[in-house]
Design a protein around this nucleic acid. Structure first.
Lengths: 272, 272
DNA sequence: ACTAAGTGTTCGTATTTACGAACCGTGTTT
DNA sequence: AAACACGGTTCGTAAATACGAACACTTAGT
């Protein structure tokens, strides 16, 4: 591992790791914590964190000696969305879907083997589902994640999931790689993924990937609702809406096939 | 200037500057551009940008050789909002205000002498106003900016605005420091700021600051509408709504005074 | 009251990075 | 087709950072 020719600059890598740690750990942290958790010498972390604070990336509380994120991190992060085409193209469609169904519509991308929620439009339903924008989640137990996995060659799926037994969240979560692969095959035939309480005991969701002109999966969108015994009755309507929206978005990125999961979409023909 | 005892780490400062540059310039940039614009030697910028790319902060397009922001920047930026208390406390109030008026409600903070838009809830009005979340704007010509300026001591206002002639955006923009100071004094008496087409020829807006237990201004909220000859008729209703909301939010941060601009709020008694 | 354990901070030097210059690859001009 | 311009990449060494150790300060324990 790490035999890449890329020369990693230790200082900037540490700066990012520190901000990432503070962003994911939902509490502000002290210099000592960072030093311990990330195995960075105190004096080194000191220099880095104080420059980050000077640059308004981190906010230093002089009383509690705790560091939290500051506005510049937000400004830079917003820059990602404002020039991320998927986001701007998808948003009106998400709104439309949310209005038509009363449920919440989501947009997510894959990154480092997990999904990252980019956007949501909450429905008016009193029992609507939600999530925190920017948060990560597992792929094998979410509708969005499975929709994306189904576009990938088997080697990549194995790499991401680990290939053996999978982390279980509910009674319905796929516990094994083989079980997941069978589901992915169905997803490809069906044209959309279903998450029937696999991530959360109360949430039902259908999702479809977004593809570009090179048949690369660049994102996925979903409709998500609180599960009730008659949720299945809405499945057909939900899947139609979400598939049409995904096709419309995909076409704006040059995708030309008439359906989302075509043979060209994924490099995989048999799952053995 | 800059005689602080803080030892700035050149490497992390540059890394932040690079991301900041890419975030504010709305186009992807090449290594050469960064090197020229930020006066960083090519070979140094090379190392930094490639580690940033490795860390998923930047995305490197191997064909066009252009760098843009990647998801991690978004994730980190989202971390700011999810633990920024003002944001979570203010959001439901913004929603409420937007529903009651049909117009757009905004939340912004001050940073480095400018306002940064943190959140908005767009109204249903077909002629609603909007902005890009995460963007910056001038203080002296916006309702949000003036509401915040009015809480500051005169030295700080002078520092931020430059103290002399001000950048003019419309016929109504304050062109001089003195003109602005007279307005701020009125704002303090009135309890809220008015932006009557000072930033944009078509936008009218009322705004109020959010204060914490130490009487520090931590943010501002506003209602913004397309200007029409009868917009003034809504002023009283708008200002009541926004002031009540600001007081409600401020109290959650320990603010105890019965009105927003009390004598304790700002260190300033006369403007000469 | 003293000790101990926890912070953050400073400082000198071993270690790492920075960066000028040379190189490579592409596309454009002459 | 040679020369040029303009981008990215590599490399050796001057220059800047990293970091162990010592220090200072606060809080908790005995």
């Amino acid at each position: 591992m790490e035999q890449e020719g890329i020369k990693i600059n230790k200082t900037v890598a540490r700066a990012i790791d520190i901000m990432d740690y503070i962003a994911t750990n939902k509490k502000p942290v002290t210099l000592a914590t960072i030093s311990k958790e990330l195995s960075i010498p105190k004096s080194s972390a000191f220099d880095i964190m104080h420059t980050l604070a000077e640059k308004k990336m981190l906010k230093a509380n002089n009383e509690t000696k705790q560091f939290s994120l500051d506005v510049k991190s937000f400004e830079i992060g917003s820059g990602y969305l404002s020039r991320n085409d998927v986001h701007t193209v998808a948003r009106p469609l998400l709104k439309q879907i949310s209005q038509q169904t009363g449920e919440t519509a989501f947009l997510a991308v894959e990154n480092n083997g997990m999904i990252v929620y980019l956007d949501k439009v909450e429905g008016i339903s009193p029992t609507r589902t939600t999530c925190v924008i920017g948060d990560r989640n597992l792929m094998h137990c979410t509708g969005l994640g499975k929709a994306i996995l189904a576009t990938m060659p088997i080697e990549k799926i194995r790499l991401i999931t680990g290939g053996g037994s999978l982390q279980v969240r509910t009674q319905n979560t796929h516990a094994t790689f083989n079980s997941l692969m069978l589901d992915l095959e169905e997803i490809r035939k069906r044209g959309y993924s279903i998450d029937n309480r696999e991530d959360n005991d109360y949430v039902y969701c259908v999702a479809v990937p977004i593809l570009d002109g090179d048949n690369n999966c660049i994102a996925a969108i979903s409709i998500s609702a609180i599960y009730t015994p008659d949720t299945e009755n809405h499945r057909e309507a939900f899947s139609q809406l979400i598939t049409n929206a995904a096709l419309e978005i995909s076409r704006k990125f040059g995708y030309v096939n008439p359906r989302i999961y075509s043979e060209d979409t994924y490099g995989l023909t048999d799952i053995n």
